[in-house]
Amino acid sequence: MENKYQDQVYHFKGLWDLPSICGLKIIKKAETSIIIATDLYDNNPGTSITEWNTKLAWELCNKFELNPENLIFIEHTPNKETKLEFNRETFFKVNFTIENGSFVNPVWNQLTNDEVDKLISE
């Protein structure tokens, strides 16, 4: 894959069971795991990762045996290479609360590319 933030395309069932896809990169470290989920707007027939992030993050933790207590979940929107500002690349770290065996209350914090690269390489 050309995109350094994406190793595979992940298929999931989104809102109302809509077949949905996102890009996925998982970096497992000793203490924490990092998930980078890339929104594939132009190719995703279903739900965006932002609207499904709590369920998607939990599903990924189960599937890839990641500890939800020590997870860094990053939403990535790739650069669509248009002149429009809202099509530029963005990264948001999403903090969740764990409640009754699921993630709730997502809070987003924007990260720069450098901050993401630093997180990955640390």
Partner: peptide, 13 residues
Amino acid sequence: PHTKAYVDLVKQN
């Protein structure tokens, strides 16, 4: 809801 405009603005609060 369910537009890119919506999710972008939600993320940015």
